[in-house]
Amino acid sequence: MTPIRVGIVDDYDVIRAGLERLFARYDDLCVVATAKNGLEALELVSHDALDVLILDIAMPGHGAVDVLEKILSNQPDIKVLIFTGYPEQRYALPMIRLGARGYVDKASPLLDIVEAVRMVAAGRSYFSSKVRELMADAVRPGTMPGEGVDLTAREFQIFLRLAAGETVTEIARALSLSDVTISSHRSRLLTKLKLSSNSHLTRFALENRFLN
């Protein structure tokens, strides 16, 4: 049996090393590459043949939202599994919309991540009961949980960048879009979230744990 080829992206050495030791216990799992930030993640998937990429959300440089979008636009066959300490109610739905095949909380039992890797490698999805509830709620109005706001994947991506202090021009350059397009998204974001400025976006993001 050919082992499942796994890549791990996390900025903490202890997490990467711990997952490598965990997967080494199983003959059907093989860690072929690791990375500690978004830029290294993009280089990793361009050089290594992977079945499953385990991706943290909070990383230096390119964030997981941008990394996930770029990876799946270029290599749609890679199954991306989000492994993070960020709360499901904030990040799960946007990451699923961007193409993540699973979402595992770092506080989960170790065997959950093993099961998740196997399931997504087999072409299935892996979501906790909490995430499944969020997905069920998403068919009703209000899919930014707790706020009654439905953001598209692109709007969520721009929301995170604006909240982090990036300018419209910086975001446009990073996403290869025009300033006009980003400004339009910004206006819709402010309207949907009932906010009036970028500083309010940042405060909203901090208060609701979208940013550290």
Results as ranks from 00 to 15, higher is better:
M1Q: 07
R5Y: 03
I8N: 01
A17D: 11
R21I: 11
A24S: 13
Y26I: 08
D27S: 13
V31E: 12
T34E: 06
T34D: 04
G38N: 02
G38S: 07
A41L: 08
D48N: 15
A49G: 12
G63M: 01
G63E: 02
A64L: 04
A64F: 03
S73A: 15
N74R: 15
Q75M: 13
I78G: 02
K79R: 15
K79D: 14
L81M: 08
F83I: 03
Q89I: 10
A92S: 07
P94E: 11
I96D: 08
V104M: 03
S108Y: 07
L111Q: 10
V117D: 02
M119I: 07
M119K: 13
A122W: 00
R124E: 14
S125M: 04
L134R: 09
M135W: 07
P141C: 14
G142L: 08
M144K: 02
G146H: 01
R154P: 03
R154D: 11
F159D: 01
L160W: 00
G165V: 02
T167H: 04
T169C: 04
I171V: 06
A172N: 08
R173G: 04
L177A: 09
S183L: 11
S184Y: 12
S187F: 07
S187K: 12
L189T: 07
K192H: 11
L193Y: 10
H200K: 13
R203T: 14
N208E: 10
F210A: 08
L211Q: 03
